[in-house]
Design a protein around this nucleic acid. Sequence first.
DNA 1: TCATATTGAGAACGTACGTTCTCGATCAAT
DNA 2: ATTGATCGAGAACGTACGTTCTCAATATGA
Lengths: 199, 199
Amino acid sequence: MPAAITEEQQSLDRRALLDAAEDLFYRQGIQAVGMDDLRSAAGLPLKRIYRLFPTKEALIVAMLERRDLRWRGDLAAHLDTVPDPRERVLALFDWLGAWFAEPGFRGCAWVNAHGELGPTAPAITEAARSHKRAFHAQVTALVNPVAPSATESIYLLAEGAIVVAGIHNDPAAAARARAGTRALLDAAGSGRAGAAAGG
Amino acid sequence: MPAAITEEQQSLDRRALLDAAEDLFYRQGIQAVGMDDLRSAAGLPLKRIYRLFPTKEALIVAMLERRDLRWRGDLAAHLDTVPDPRERVLALFDWLGAWFAEPGFRGCAWVNAHGELGPTAPAITEAARSHKRAFHAQVTALVNPVAPSATESIYLLAEGAIVVAGIHNDPAAAARARAGTRALLDAAGSGRAGAAAGG
DNA sequence: TCATATTGAGAACGTACGTTCTCGATCAAT
DNA sequence: ATTGATCGAGAACGTACGTTCTCAATATGA
């Protein structure tokens, strides 16, 4: 048996490739990045790339899945540092604000990918939906103990802030969503909780 | 002077072309639609298309601008039918809900275009920002007379509803945003308006 | 050392797209 | 009727991309 690639090497390659893909796809848009660009950035021969992922689309989906796990893990870690349940809800928007302020922030990677490739790549639509469902569940678990009637509104405030911050490159959208969340929490806590249930 | 194209014909061509572009770009994504597809759909020779718009990018921008005018005009027309200022705020979400329920709804065309081409086409980023600024101004004019402290929150609820409805193809996001808006209006009207001002 | 399977680097392939060009047909002015 | 500018239909051009293939170099087992 001559020169074979170890499992450990595959794992390193995979990480380098996904790192490069995540960075380039997010910064430039997915279709604007070619497989040769990924090869240069990851420092991997094309042959290894295609052994790790059979198509570009599979690589995109894997990149979105890994990013989803890290994104939600980072959020959960931040929320875990805030003991008070009500303050913890507001901390969601502090974390979002820090994300928005990162250099190169360009909105939600899943929304961008869905807008770009959703119509032609169902697997990418599903990745975006899966991420949004998971984020929604996170917000639900966060808000339900404090003000269950405000859960959906606070989730929509977060989604709205992400979009607005992404398009205008305006991190302050997080503070505005945070203020709205405070108003909703106050309202729910003052016996007017029923106000968010009707149609 | 032999066979010249009249100004009136140019106007008809322009409309047919923008109609085709708006439909195809929105349904399939911009980069997935080629100039030949537009030629077939609009029934125009390529030469006329390139006389109307020098590049595909110019056509995209013109399409977004026309859509912006129509979209905001339709919204304004709907809001004008509601006399009560508070009900008029809620009517925003009824109109959004009807939009979400249209067959083929696929989220915000400007967010999609920005996600797809923003990094490589500054003119498209600017078109998206311009539309969002104008929509924000519309919401501000709508909410300010009723509950100025809730303006930003209600705007973010609307943006959040559009994204969520687009990704999950779930028109009910409008009803959830509407419920949140009602809670915010109630809170602002009950002497707790200051709650949405702090940070 | 020799044989062999596998690798890396990149050329090659097929396709698709944005844009321009060709060319016979068409129509207004004379 | 003749001329000549302009048109429509689509071929052509140049480029770029996703994917596959070539082939010399390499490293391993006998």
